[in-house]
Amino acid sequence: MEKIPILKLGDLLLVSIQVDMHDRLALALQDDLTGQVVKHKARGVLIDISALEIVDSFIGRMLSNIAAMTRTLGAETVVVGMRPAVAITIVELGMALNDVHTALNVEKGIALLESLIREREAVEAHEGPQP
């Protein structure tokens, strides 16, 4: 079966979606990513969607789910490279994606991830390790 590759870079996982996302593939990526976050104890996930020409409610929900699930597992998620036309249709569809951090490009995304991870570590140091 086709699969979207997940790259490990230090404590980050990088995903660049370069293929057309049909629903089964989106669900597989969601499962795969959460599994990899646990396996590698990743602190951050970066998803590059610059190749995606459309994001419908299913893919939008996948992005929200990934952000929520990885957060529970101790990792922050940032989505980068959303095309302007995609950003417009997402809003018109009625999806807020409020819970998903976004950045313009990979470079800015990694910077954002690093600051989110630092913030989180500061909170954890203060409160003790999270369960």
């Binding site: 629903d23 020409e53 459309i54 994001v55 419908d56 409610s57 299913f58 095309r83 036309a85 995609v86 417009i88 249709t89 018109e92 569809l93």
Partner: peptide, 17 residues
């Protein structure tokens, strides 16, 4: 226009699903 393409393709995706 690109935005028209994106809108219709997204709507089609929803209805086809």
């Amino acid at each position: 226009r690109l935005i028209a393409q994106t809108r219709l393709a997204t709507a089609v995706s929803e209805l086809a699903r």
